[in-house]
Amino acid sequence: MSDWERSSTARVIPPARPRKLAKVPFVELADGRLQGVVSSGSDIERVYVSSIAAGSWTFACSTNNNRPCGGARGGFCNHIRALVNEAVLQYGAERVARYLRVETADGEPDAQGVTDAMSAARPPQGDTAAAAPVFSRFLRHLAYLELAPTTAPLPEMQWFPPTRAVA
């Protein structure tokens, strides 16, 4: 244990696991929420911005034009369920459950268990105030693809070794 604390290259967060991005192009554990962007099943021009707050599990789902999601009345819509599923694929169920502060019955969380545990508590529906910042974080995320590579040395990356461990 003390070795880890005295290590310059201690691995603190495991890398994201690969997943298919078509359905949920963006998911993150940030700002005290599980939040992300979910593609509409019917209209390729439309995306939903969905979120669940850690602890209270207050949920919200609306389009990027701030229209409320018809499915998210009184309970989790399919977008939110998809968000949890993809978050579990990307980060591992344990990290998602810990971030949201969900305790699953059998102690070995999976996506279904995490969703059910929150859903059973009948969490409140929040307003869609978070939609705009989440969407702008998605745009920021996409903008990383537009940044130019460099062949100038980047010695700071020596502190970020890869790891074969998975989330």
């Binding site: 890398p15 994201a16 696991r17 690969p18 997943r19 991005l21 963006f26 993150e28 990307q90 995320h141 996409l142 990383y144 693809l145 940044l147 130019a148 590579p149 460099t150 062949t151 040395p153 980047l154 990356m157």
Partner: peptide, 24 residues
């Protein structure tokens, strides 16, 4: 040493890293 680096979205991992770096 000769290196190349690039910022990336967090969902680009594994072989995707080589694909970003290879052309440069």
């Amino acid at each position: 040493r000769a290196g190349v680096s690039v910022p990336k979205p967090d969902t680009v991992v594994g072989a995707g890293l080589w694909q970003l770096l290879r052309p440069h």
